[in-house]
Design a binder for these strands. Structure first.
Lengths: 144, 144
DNA sequence: ATTGAAGTGGGAAAAAGTGGGAATTAGCGG
DNA sequence: CCGCTAATTCCCACTTTTTCCCACTTCAAT
């Protein structure tokens, strides 16, 4: 289970270290892609398999489904984990998430998210302010 | 599985390099045809077989189906992969997708798409702007 | 203090992408 | 049918990018 938040730095070669606590579970190859809300999603190979198979079922001839699969699959990249536990972030993903300098790596159970430190703290703050209303709403629809 | 986005250039002889990560899966011969949304679709021989068989099932006597299969099958061309991993784009497809200079090659699970850099970035921008609404919608209809 | 693990930085080797020339093939006119 | 031109294919060489590896630093624990 991937949990916890870590702050690492993106170096000049666009590399980030994965938190050492995540490494065993993630293996020597991970998949990184566009996330929702200006972050990147990172999956282990097995989690990615589940997710990508779902995506591959989206019809080719429907505009919105095509859009979404381009976003997720076209935006994905296999990233090998180097000897020091780092992965390489491609330029287009780096820009998408606005990564520069310090980045936050957060484990969300079965996936990992990569945020710029700045957007992470802003997002966090906004959630904290509304968590009460949010939880109420989820309760109403029976999600929790 | 074909995933990721790569920017390569279309040279004076109308050649583009296939991303090296795609080469093993695509083999030494691929099929390129008209795509949806001003791009080209590119398939491995085996994926093309599946796709074209589906198309061949479309009824001959219905106008719209006839249109679609002409578009896809009539526009298709076999392209050999040269020693350096490049293929040749025929003029009519090049013009269809408006390819010139830098082109983007994106893997979408079982197919590859070829875009002009310009239309790709425009398309992407519009998707990113609405991805939140889009994913919400797909969630509601149970597609994901 | 010393050891070890984690994170960071940078250099060298290997691979990928690109451009262009030579050779082969195809098309065309004589 | 032959020769000329044009186009395509094949191959080699250069450049850039990526990958791999090693070394330094920091922090924690003993």
């Amino acid at each position: 289970m991937l949990i916890g938040e870590y702050t690492h730095s993106l170096d000049e070669k666009n590399r980030v270290s994965l938190p050492s606590k995540f490494r065993r579970e993630l293996g020597r190859k991970v998949i990184v892609t566009h996330g929702l809300d200006t972050c990147l999603f990172l999956f282990s190979e097995s989690e990615w398999k589940k997710f990508s198979e779902k995506l591959s079922g989206l019809s080719l001839v429907q505009r919105d489904k095509r859009k979404f699969s381009r976003f997720m699959l076209g935006g994905a990249t296999e990233a090998g984990v180097d000897g020091a536990g780092r992965i390489l972030i491609p330029d287009f993903l780096k820009e998408f998430a606005g990564l520069k300098g310090k980045v936050v790596i957060a484990g969300i159970y079965s996936r990992v998210e990569i945020w710029s430190e700045k957007s992470w703290s802003a997002y966090k703050k906004s959630v904290e302010k509304n968590i009460d209303i949010l939880s109420e709403k989820l309760g109403e629809v029976g999600a929790l």
